[in-house]
Amino acid sequence: MMAFGGNKEGVLQRGNFRQYIRSYALVIIFLGVCAIFAIASPTFLSPTNIVGVFRQIAINGVLALGMTLVIITGGIDLSVGSLMAITGVVSAMILENDPNMLAVALIVGIGAAAVVSMWTAVLVAKMKIAPFIASLSTMTIARGIALVLADGIPHTIKNAEYSQIGNGYLWDASLTGGVGFPILVLILIVIAVITTIILYNTKFGRYIYAVGGNEHAAEASGVNVVKIKFWTYVLNGVLCGVAGMMLAARITSGQPNAGDGYELDAITAVIIGGTSMAGGSGKISGTIIGALIIGVLDNGLVLLGVSSYYQQIIKGIIIAVAVLLDMKTKKR
């Protein structure tokens, strides 16, 4: 009996250990990647580089948070990069006319991305068009709008306060040995807190999960599926606008070709973070860690002198592995 009891206890312990590993797999992977690059490159753990990594992931982090909401509903949005470009162009052109209209430039720029995202929202929610096709349409339209508005050329942002959003710190970095806290990172933290509250502490957030888990069951339970999908895509558009504002401030110009390819990093961060492409499950914390993993990979590979071409190959492999793991988990 004692032997039997001991064996049972061992099985339970092994089960608990596996559950622990699964629960903290992302954190373990992140720390493992950091350890590898710390050994391979002596500059990886320098304070300046660490701050640079966090600043680097801030824009993609905001994009990925919006993408998380969309993917939880069972959708996807390929237009995020184009929406970012619209925000940058609109903001820059407003400031060209009057450099003092900072608030107007921010509000109208972000609002422009939200308005254009309504095209995807209508196509997906009301017209029942597949999100991939609908957002592909919006991606093309939005990029065209950005090019038309900007006349195909970059527009310099003529406002120092706007530029500070992308390049400034909360305090003078020289006072702390050259290491400051980037404003971009603060924006990411604020957006992460807001999306966390929306997703976990509001009826709207619960309905997002319900729609992604089983759309027909949610509708039968009284959930207005059309409304939830519509406003999820619009909210994603708002976050694309915020990310576009951050990027424009970082490069100090509104460029009609800005944000090209950003959808890949956003989707990768969400998938690595454990959000199911089938919808119905996902965590904000997972997406943040996913964005950190992508940022650390990009930074570490650059420090090691790996070509950006190979970086794209590595990201593609990561996406495939993450989806396969998600499928394997769903079968259990």
Rank of each mutant, 00 (worst) to 15 (best):
A112Q: 04
S79Y: 01
I59K: 03
G66I: 04
T48R: 15
V70W: 01
G61K: 01
V122M: 11
A105H: 01
R55H: 03
L78M: 15
F37I: 02
W119K: 02
V51K: 07
T68A: 07
I94W: 03
S46H: 13
S41F: 02
A58R: 07
T68W: 07
V53A: 10
L106V: 12
G75N: 08
A38W: 09
V108A: 13
V70Y: 03
P47Y: 10
G81W: 00
I50P: 03
A58C: 08
A35K: 12
G52K: 00
I39A: 10
N97A: 14
V53W: 02
N60I: 12
V53H: 05
A58E: 03
A64D: 08
V108I: 12
S79T: 06
V116T: 06
I94A: 11
S79D: 09
G81A: 08
T120M: 06
T68F: 08
V116C: 10
I50L: 15
M101Q: 15
D77I: 06
I86D: 13
I71M: 03
V70D: 02
V116A: 10
D77F: 08
V89M: 05
G111N: 05
S79W: 01
T43H: 14
G88E: 05
L123S: 06
T48F: 13
V51M: 06
G66L: 08
P99H: 02
V62A: 05
G109I: 03
S117Y: 08
G111Y: 07
L63W: 08
A35I: 06
W119F: 13
G66D: 13
I50M: 14
A113H: 07
D77S: 13
A113F: 05
V90D: 11
S91H: 01
V116P: 10
A113N: 07
V51S: 09
I76C: 09
V122P: 03
L63Y: 13
I86L: 11
N100K: 10
A121Q: 08
N60D: 09
L63G: 09
V108N: 10
M84R: 04
M101F: 00
I94C: 12
V122L: 13
I110G: 00
I76E: 11
V89D: 02
A40E: 04
L106C: 12
G66W: 14
L95D: 15
L65Y: 15
V51R: 11
I72Y: 05
I110Y: 00
A113C: 07
G66V: 04
L65F: 14
T48S: 15
Q56P: 06
N60Y: 11
G109M: 05
T43E: 15
A121K: 06
M67I: 04
A105F: 04
G61R: 01
L78N: 14
D98Q: 03
T43N: 15
S117P: 06
L78V: 08
S82N: 14
M101C: 08
F37V: 02
L106F: 10
G88K: 00
G81E: 05
I71N: 06
I72C: 11
A114M: 11
I59T: 14
T120N: 15
P99L: 00
G75P: 07
L102D: 11
A35L: 13
A85R: 00
G81K: 00
I39L: 14
I57H: 14
Q56G: 09
V80M: 14
I107Y: 01
I107K: 02
F54C: 13
I110E: 00
V80C: 14
A114F: 07
V90T: 03
G109S: 06
A105L: 00
F54Q: 12
I86A: 13
T43C: 04
